Amino acid sequence: MKLTSICKAIALSAAVLCSSLQAETVYVATTAIVEHPALDAVRDGIKEVLNENGYTDENLKFTYESAQGQPAIAAQIARKMVGDAPDVIVAIATPSAQAAASASKDIPVVFSAVTDPVGAKLVSTLIQPGGNVTGLSDMVNVKQQLALIQEFLPNLKTIGVPYNPGEANSVSIVNALKEAAQEVGVTVIESPAPKSSDVMIASKQLVGKVDAIYCSTDNTIVSAFESVVKVGMDAQIPVFAADTDSVERGAVAAVGYDYGDLGRQTGDIVVRILKGEKPGMIDVKLAEGTSLYVNPKMAAKMGIEIPAAVLARATKVVE
Rank of each mutant, 00 (worst) to 15 (best):
V317H: 04
K316R: 11
A242R: 05
T125L: 01
Y64V: 08
A29T: 13
S246Q: 13
A9C: 14
D138L: 12
S191Y: 05
E35Q: 12
T266S: 06
S170H: 08
P154C: 09
A193P: 02
L177Q: 04
D116R: 01
P37R: 11
Q70I: 11
Q265Y: 09
G232V: 07
G232N: 04
G131E: 08
K278D: 14
V133T: 11
L286Y: 07
D245M: 12
T56Y: 02
Q128E: 11
V110L: 07
A93I: 11
P162S: 04
A97C: 12
S246K: 07
K178L: 08
E48I: 10
R264S: 09
G267E: 03
D211Y: 03
V271N: 01
A97S: 14
V161F: 00
K157E: 05
V231T: 06
V239T: 04
T30E: 06
E248I: 12
S197R: 12
A181N: 03
S20A: 15
S5L: 15
P71M: 04
R249T: 12
I77T: 07
A99Q: 08
C215V: 15
A11C: 15
I189Y: 05
V222S: 12
V310T: 08
D245A: 14
D261V: 15
E183L: 13
T315V: 08
M233S: 05
V133P: 02
V114R: 01
N155I: 11
G232Y: 06
T63D: 06
A254P: 14
S13E: 14
N132F: 07
F62Y: 07
V174A: 02
K8Y: 13
V252K: 06
